[in-house]
């Protein structure tokens, strides 16, 4: 089966005189995975996600999503969805109005948007607040709206940048359960988080990334066995050390 993500010899730096973030970077993610991209602050996780979604452009190398080059093939944007870490939507609008706008921009027609909005709001427990402005919602509700926007067009690949930041336990479980359900239906998940217990519960495979390099990559159980660790947190500290990374 074709890889969901295929990154070859990727080179990237923010500006000519700034430090290199990625040098000859390679990564393959198989279709149908729940792939965790983990690492300390400043490791390059968000930059890599921005490169994979076309927000940033690489200096050289290639990034292919289901065989299509992100920088060359305009159709590739229909294949994936993106759930950013921040609430990247319009707080003045209701969930239904946000979904109407983002659905149209994702290429859906009026009828598809209507059906999908109803379905998603019911699945994410937002039906009773469908027409209320999001600005009045709790953090957890906003995260669910953020997620609904990312999946409205039924993407084959879903990028999630810390999708459960700042939410309560109930919402976190609801989101993780929903993501597993999506994955069962064929969506490949590419996920970053600092919440390692959540990553353990969600991911089938993980890559530990530090200073723009992959320092470990495999399915979770093999990695823990190889490094003689009982949990992801121990493995993380063992491989990335205990010193601050963002000071």
């Amino acid at each position: 089966m074709e890889d969901a993500i295929q990154i070859q010899n990727l080179n990237f730096q923010y500006a000519e005189n700034s430090g290199v973030v990625f040098k000859d970077f390679n990564l393959n993610i198989a279709t149908g995975e729940r792939f965790g991209l983990l690492g300390p602050n400043g490791a390059g996780k968000t930059t890599l996600m921005n490169l994979m979604t076309g927000v940033l452009q690489s200096k050289s190398g290639s990034i292919k999503l289901l065989g299509k080059n992100i920088e060359e093939d305009k159709e590739v944007k229909k294949l994936f969805g993106f759930v950013p870490q921040h609430h990247s939507f319009y707080q003045e609008l209701s969930p239904a109005e946000n979904l109407e706008f983002f659905g149209a921009w994702a290429g859906l027609n009026r009828k598809e948007i209507k059906e999908r909005t109803k379905e998603l709001l019911a699945m994410l427990g937002l039906s009773n607040v469908a027409d209320k402005p999001v600005s009045k919602f709790s953090g957890g509700m906003k995260n669910r709206v953020n997620l609904a926007i990312g999946v409205i067009h039924r993407p084959k690949i879903l990028f999630l940048d810390e999708p459960t930041t700042g939410v309560d336990v109930q919402t976190r479980h609801a989101i993780v359960d929903y993501l597993k359900e999506l994955n069962k239906n064929g969506t490949t998940l590419i996920y970053t988080s600092h919440h390692l217990a959540e990553a353990e519960s969600l991911c089938t495979k993980v890559a530990l990334i530090d200073e723009g390099k992959i320092i470990a990559q495999n399915d979770l159980h093999t990695l823990l066995r190889e490094h003689k660790q009982e949990g992801l947190e121990g493995l993380f500290l063992n491989l990335t050390g205990r010193s601050y990374r963002d000071s």
Binding site: N50, K77, F89, A106, G107
Partner: peptide, 8 residues
């Protein structure tokens, strides 16, 4: 940024 990831 989100709009930039959409096919429009």
């Amino acid at each position: 940024i989100r709009l930039k990831t959409l096919p429009t």
